[in-house]
């Protein structure tokens, strides 16, 4: 298989995204793979690396919608929400842009290498770092300003505290981009950051229709299925451990484990890496 063609654009050159001019310090040189016309006007979908199944499901949902409507999904290819966003866009054959903290030809993080090589062929992978550069500690924060600049809006799907997603949100606000956040449980530490953004004024996004409306698109309001299962309702509010669920509902532990397992196999619930169960958006 042929290696995908790569390019290097100078500031002001034809194809160099004019959106970077909004930044106080646009990159002088831009390295990358893919179609430079897809740079600009995208939707940044970002979130924490240690994403919960909830965060991942939200990434999939919103990125999938954006990409299938031709809006490039911009993110940083980090493990967790970022990577899930790129994958969701690739899955619907939509446009997606990864901005790397290292050279655009470097597979970082390593576990993203399969997705990155796919994106070099079918999407866009860019960086302001020369070919072959390894990531530096400071380059992550620097790259976040590029993610903000290439997007018309930034959607934070899940962030704890402290979180790197805040620098992206700050850059976005500095250059006049919208920042949205997906609300999470007030009890979940994984959602404390994204909930704080809402408190600070970021409009909450609770379904695809709301996002579409904010971005000037039309979309049918998707009515979340109303659950009749009281267990499922409880877990929608906050992820819990089987022990706590059994106590809260006064159930036998074996029965609880089996009910949770059944709901999981139906795709209503996901087991978190720490053993809690949480509802998945449907």
């Amino acid at each position: 298989m042929n290696a995908p063609a790569r390019w290097c654009l100078q500031r002001g050159e034809d194809g160099y995204p004019f959106e970077f001019e909004d930044l106080p310090d646009p990159p002088e040189l831009l390295y990358g793979y893919g179609d430079p016309d897809l740079l600009g006007g995208g939707l940044a979908v970002i979130g924490s690396r240690r994403a919960t199944p909830y965060g991942l499901a939200c990434s999939r949902r919103f990125s999938g919608w954006a990409a299938s409507n031709g809006i490039p999904v911009v993110s940083g290819a980090a493990i967790g929400c970022d990577l899930e966003s790129h994958r969701a866009a690739l899955a619907v054959d939509g446009p997606t842009v990864a901005v790397l903290p290292c050279g655009a030809d470097v597979d970082y993080p390593r576990r993203a290498s399969a997705t990155l090589s796919e994106m070099r062929r079918r999407g866009v992978v860019i960086s302001e770092a020369p070919w072959g550069t390894d990531p530096k500690r400071w380059s992550f924060v620097r790259r976040n300003r590029l993610i903000a600049a290439l997007s018309r809006a930034v959607l934070v799907v899940e962030a704890g505290l402290p979180s790197g997603t805040f620098t992206t949100a700050d850059h976005a606000l500095d250059i006049g981009r919208q920042v949205f956040a997906v609300p999470g449980s007030i009890l979940a530490p994984e959602c404390r950051g994204s909930n704080r953004l809402i408190r600070q004024g970021a409009p909450p996004i609770t379904d695809v229709a709301e996002l579409a409306q904010e971005l000037g698109y039309e979309a049918q309001a998707d009515v979340p299925a109303h659950s009749t299962d009281r267990l499922l309702t409880a877990l929608t509010a906050t992820p819990m451990r089987p022990d706590d669920i059994a106590r809260a509902f006064d159930l036998d532990i074996v029965q609880t484990i089996r009910t949770l397992g059944t709901l999981e196999s139906l795709g209503h619930l996901a087991r978190y890496p720490d053993g809690r169960y949480g509802a998945l958006p449907r």
Binding site: V254, I257, R258, G261, P273, D274, G275
Partner: peptide, 16 residues
């Protein structure tokens, strides 16, 4: 089915 479902709650694949 019940036994299999319960067993799946103790699979270690995605636990950490």
């Amino acid at each position: 089915v019940d036994h299999v479902i319960e067993a799946s709650a103790f699979r270690r694949e995605d636990l950490r």
